[in-house]
């Protein structure tokens, strides 16, 4: 009988480990493509052909999943082209994918310093600030490992009901809960990111979705705003609860998580 129990436990653990490891090992696409385009875009950038480089990076982004460096390079192109709005937009998008990249931090700070409007940016709640240093990918894989360990320890508790196994389950359960909640928050904040960047050189913010409505205030390229809702080519934005209004859709672009590529490999 004990022999059978041992076999079940072994099979269960092996199954879990197989699933997790296969997820790590599995490559959803046949690998990164567009090396040539990437190389050429980098070359164009170095030669000062920023427009050409920018359009090549944009093409890469629209055709396949890319890493944060492509967004970063695209941001650099826009800085060189003096289009701060687009630059900040792409730097912020790159930050989703490489949140701890020092070059990105430096360039983003540079671009924000060049903007004309002084806008205070809100920060995360202190307890959850640590999560800003990790991308959703890192948090997810951490959760997957903890998930595996937690359920495996629970499985073990079915047969080994010792004191140490009890404390191990408690510790792993706590970690599992914290990382799980943080990961969910991260995922929610990324998928519901309301932030947008002004990409027009200057835009008027009206009291209503009409050109004839009163101009409440003006914003300049690169300013960070929060986008609330869209109505017939107009978007409701706000900076603070006291400063909100309507502007044309094309003047602001939402940062949001990079969208699915049109042609996924």
């Amino acid at each position: 009988m004990n022999h059978i129990k041992g076999k079940i436990f072994f099979i269960a653990c092996a199954l879990c480990a197989f699933m997790v490891l296969s997820a790590f090992a599995w490559d959803g696409s046949s690998g990164a493509k567009g090396y040539d385009v990437f190389f050429q875009a980098n070359q164009d950038y170095k030669e000062g052909a920023y427009e050409r480089a920018a359009s090549a990076y944009e093409r890469l982004i629209s055709e396949q999943f890319v890493g944060g460096s492509v967004y970063y390079n695209l941001g650099n192109c826009y800085v060189r082209l003096n289009r701060l709005g687009k630059a900040i937009l792409n730097y912020e998008r790159a930050r989703y994918l490489m949140p701890r990249d020092s070059d990105l931090d430096f360039n983003l700070r540079y671009a924000k310093e060049m903007t004309k409007d002084k806008i205070e940016e809100s920060s995360s709640f202190p307890i959850f600030q640590w999560i800003d240093y990790f991308g959703i990918s890192a948090v997810f894989w951490l959760f997957v490992i903890l998930n595996l360990l937690f359920w495996a320890s629970l499985l073990m508790r079915l047969w080994i009901r010792s004191e140490w196994s009890f404390y191990m389950v408690i510790c792993l359960g706590l970690l599992w809960g914290i990382v799980g909640v943080s990961g969910t928050m991260k995922w929610y904040s990324e998928t519901n990111d309301k932030r947008g960047v002004v990409i027009a050189p200057q835009m008027n913010v009206h009291s209503g979705p009409d050109e004839r409505e009163t101009v409440l205030f003006k914003l300049h390229e690169g300013s960070m705003v929060m986008c609330e809702r869209e109505e017939e080519g107009w978007i409701l934005i706000f900076i603070t609860p006291e400063k909100r209004g309507w502007t044309k859709v094309g003047s602001v672009e939402r940062i949001k998580k990079p969208a699915q590529p049109k042609i996924a490999h």
Partner: peptide, 9 residues
């Protein structure tokens, strides 16, 4: 830098 991470893919 070109490669997307597994989570994306």
């Amino acid at each position: 830098g070109l490669k997307a991470n597994r989570f994306q893919r």
